[in-house]
Structure formats: structure tokens, C-alpha cells
Design a protein around this nucleic acid. Sequence first.
DNA 1: GATAGTTTCATACACACGTTTGAAATGCAA
DNA 2: TTGCATTTCAAACGTGTGTATGAAACTATC
Lengths: 230, 230
Amino acid sequence: MASDHTRSAILAAAERLYADRGFGDVTLRDIVAEANVNLAAVNYHFGSKDELIAELFVTRSLATNRERLNELKAAEEAGGGRASIEAIMHALVGPTLRGCLGPDREGSTAARFMIRASIESVPPIRRIKNREVDHLRKFVAAMRRSLPGRDDAELYWGLHFALAMSHHTIREKERLTKLSEGQCDLNDVHAIVERVVAVSVMALTGGEPARKAPARSMAPPYGRLTRQDI
Amino acid sequence: MASDHTRSAILAAAERLYADRGFGDVTLRDIVAEANVNLAAVNYHFGSKDELIAELFVTRSLATNRERLNELKAAEEAGGGRASIEAIMHALVGPTLRGCLGPDREGSTAARFMIRASIESVPPIRRIKNREVDHLRKFVAAMRRSLPGRDDAELYWGLHFALAMSHHTIREKERLTKLSEGQCDLNDVHAIVERVVAVSVMALTGGEPARKAPARSMAPPYGRLTRQDI
DNA sequence: GATAGTTTCATACACACGTTTGAAATGCAA
DNA sequence: TTGCATTTCAAACGTGTGTATGAAACTATC
């Protein structure tokens, strides 16, 4: 294996191109040209185009999910096993929103890639997203601890709406900017997170406002992926 | 032109197939086989595959938007030029949710097609959706009349979140059902509409609950489309 | 420095796709 | 019927695609 140079070059080039032009418009030939490697290298290193896309998405997804769970764990420990519903919602939507809208450290190709993945929904990515349910159950469990009296269905709806608002904001940020003629500030990620959390909490509790929480971000460089799930 | 038989058969077959298998998996050859017409007929009648898809989507979109504006107008007239914010949100999300989730009259292929269009986001459909901004401005205007003191940005965010919740519910209804193990009832469209409206209103006003409104639906049979916009 | 394993490379394969073509069929008016 | 426009049809076109192949280059171990 030696240096992994080819492999990493393919991953980086693919992410860059997909981020810029979308999945539909990028061919393997585009990718290998951008990466300065041979066409056959993709199938040699990844097996197929779909597996390449899957690996890109899984890597980024894992990072986000890890962040989510870290925040959740931290919030629960700080609260002696029971986090506030605000903190839980924060852990749920914060990493995704910051990862896609935030000023992320090493250039925003990872962010733009995830936005694309959120918009275009190509088969290999859809397959991975469908496994996200287990991940979300951990949040439902935390919510149940935080709001013990609540009907479970209410918790699911609250979670669902929180994801709705964060994903839709990511997906349609251009449209919202255009519609509002710039009056909605899509650059202040912190404010957006607070806003989404506030509405989510209202949806769950039926009133009273929200409060604060910390900040982090996504996008590691690519290394070899130790095969695991989302 | 005679009977339009071929044209309509293509539209019906295409909508059925796209609804069932998605845009990515259906070729022109599949469509003409299903419609029992010749391959060249598609290009003869529609010019290209993309124009066929666009026509399908525009037809259904127009119906929904018409319904939205009708409800909005009715609400504003009933209120003497100023509708309640509940009624406005209702007019915004009701037709879409009923159109995609409701038990619609003539079989649900139109509904399933619109769900697909909401999930897959193929280029000709994206192009059409981008023109929807003008349509939404009418709702912003109504909201401004209904909540005169509010900052415009707040109105845009409220509208944005309302669309987020309704679209995400349509797009992810399967996942929500799975996640909640059936505890979230995705069949009771009326209840869903009320729920989305309630949260939207809370997002806009910061508290107090919502109230009721009427019901209608989409999905006309296909006739020739008098060329117009969304 | 020969050998075995890994990686790269140019090239070709196979084929599914949207579109085009030009002729045949059909419909319609005079 | 004749003539003209519309519509249908079978067939092919051309190209862009992911993938497969088999030889060459490289690397590391003994």
C-alpha cells in the first residue's frame, strides 16, 4: 500500500467535484482527471463508483454523528444523567448546521459536499441515510429522560421537526437568501442554531423560550476508513 | 391533432412509472412500453425527456399553488383583508400536505409522483422550483398584513420553517413511521396539518396555540397544458 | 538481484441511453 | 379521389458511461 497517495487523491478530487457540480454531472473520468490518476484506479481502490461515493459520505457522516453524540453525552453528564431539552436539541442540530453552514476550518469543500448530499439524494447515499435510525433513537431516549411525562409520539414529532428545520435550512439556504433579499442572515450559524433549537423546544413543550450551549465543527482530512457503519 | 391519445398515454404512463420507481430508474423506453406507443412519440410530442418531466411537474404544481392562493384569498376576504396567521399558514401547508399525504380521489399516483419530485430533485424540476419565489412572496405579504409589527426577517424564517416541516414530513414519512414504530400517524393528514400550522404559528408569535380550517385536494386528470408558468 | 505482491496504466468492452431520421400510415379538406 | 398536414413507426445513430482486462511498472522481502 505504501503511501495511499492515489486513494486519497481520488477521494479529495471526488469530494471537490461533487461539491462543486453535483453528483449528476461528475463522471469517473472527470474525477481521475482532477486527481491525475488512471481511470482504472477508482475501481481498483474502491470497487465501484457507488462505493466511492458511499465512502465519502460515510466518512463525513461519521464525523457529524460522533460530534452529536459527544455533545449529547456531555450535556447528560453535566445534568447528572438528564440533559435539558434545549441541550439535547442543540446536540442534534448544532453539528449538522455548523458542519454545512459554518465557517469550517480547512476550506469548505466538505461542507459543500454535505449540502450536495442533502439536496441530491443519490442511491448509495440514500442507503446509508436509511441506517441513521439507530443513531436517532439515542436522542429519543435522551428526550424521554428529559421530558418524562410526554407521549412518545410527541417526542418523535419534535425530533422530526428539528431535523426538518435544520436540513431544510441547509438545503434551501440559497432560496431563503433570495426570497428574503438577504434579510435572513445565513452566515451567522450560531443564531440559526439557536433559532432552530428554540422552535424545536417550543414544538415539544408548547411554550416558554430556550437558552444557550457550546460550539464545535466537522471536516477531518481523509485517511483510510476503518470499515464501520454510520 | 385528433384525440391526443398518445400524448395523454405518455403523460399517464410516465407519471405512474416515475411515482413507482423514481426518476433515476425510468427510461423513455420504459415509458413508451407502458404507454404502448412508439419511442419517437415522446420527442415528437414533448421535444425531450426533460420537457416531459417538466410538464408533469408543472401541471401538478399549478394545481397545488392554485389551491394555496384560493385558500389564502378566502381567508383574507373572510377577515376583511387581513387573515389570521393560522389561516395563512394553513393555506400554505395544507394543499401540499393533503396533495401528497391525503387519501386523494383518483388513485394516488399524482401524490406519489409529487413525493418523488420532492425527494429526488432532478434538473428540470429544480428549474421549475426556483421560480416559486414569486408565489411565496404573496404569502409573505399576507403575513405582513396579519402581523404588522413583526420584523420581515422573522416572517421569512417562519415561512421557511413551515415549508421545512411540511416538505420534510412528505419526504421522510417512511422514516418517521419506522423511527416511531408507527406511533406517529402519517395517515391522519388533518392532524398533521394542524400540527405543522401550530408549530409554525408558535415560531412566528413565540407562544399561544392555533385553531381550525377547511379541507380540499389535488390531482386532476391530464389534459393539454396551456403553456404557463408555475 | 531474483521473486512475489501490489499498484498503475492504456485500452477496450459492452451497452443503455436520449435523440434523429425518413418513410409509412392516417386524418382531413376540397 | 387528390393533395397536404399530422402522426406513427422501425431502425439506427452517436455518444457517454461504468467496468474489465492484461500487460507493465513499481516495491519490498529474502
